[in-house]
Amino acid sequence: MAQIFRPGADTYARMVLLSIVLLPTLAIFLTYLVMRSSTVTGQDFVLHQWPPFSHAHHAGELGIGCRMCHNSVEKAASAGMPSTHVCMTCHSQIWTNAPMLAPVRESLADDKPLHWTRVNDLPDYVYFDHSVHVNNGVGCSTCHGPVDTMPLMRQAAPLTMGWCLDCHRSPEKFVRPTDKIYDFDWQPPADQEEKGKRLLVQYHIETSHLTDCSVCHR
């Protein structure tokens, strides 16, 4: 009787068996890589803004505090965005004819708010609250990066669920003293774990419920 299988058949069979195991694993791994890449999360993309508002200039060089423009950051869920009136407290007197500031003057004249492109934008099914973080030892730079050196704003963190949970599982690695919340030079000290544990007690942070789904999906 003639042979049904050619000599190479064994190799093919092994390769098929192997790829049944390998291909899905590879597919999952690749999807994981893609989902965490900045193309999907939007991390580190610099978006066009007009007027080209510079945090490096206003917050870094001039040292204007964040609350001058993001007024509700300690009081509400939303950090708040500056009204045209806020820009005009200074730009009614300085750089009054700069073409760069034309949109601000138009906005004032037409009584139409300035339009900014959103940089950090969570999906609508996620609940986030600034005040609970800022008043409990999480500083701006932990989530927004070195804002005071950014000529144009970029999203410094991936803002994925895993990123939120990394901190919610063990906030002691990230929390800092109250007077350092707006400090962009703050780095975790060598004994952060130990100091952080003490700060958790000071802020009354109870970690056992921080990873419940209903905290962020309400």
Partner: peptide
Amino acid sequence: SMQDQPSIKPYEATAMWPDGTPE
């Protein structure tokens, strides 16, 4: 539709009012 729900978040652009803002 879960990502962008019909409800308007603060500062989200909207066509509901002529000036385009929910504030």
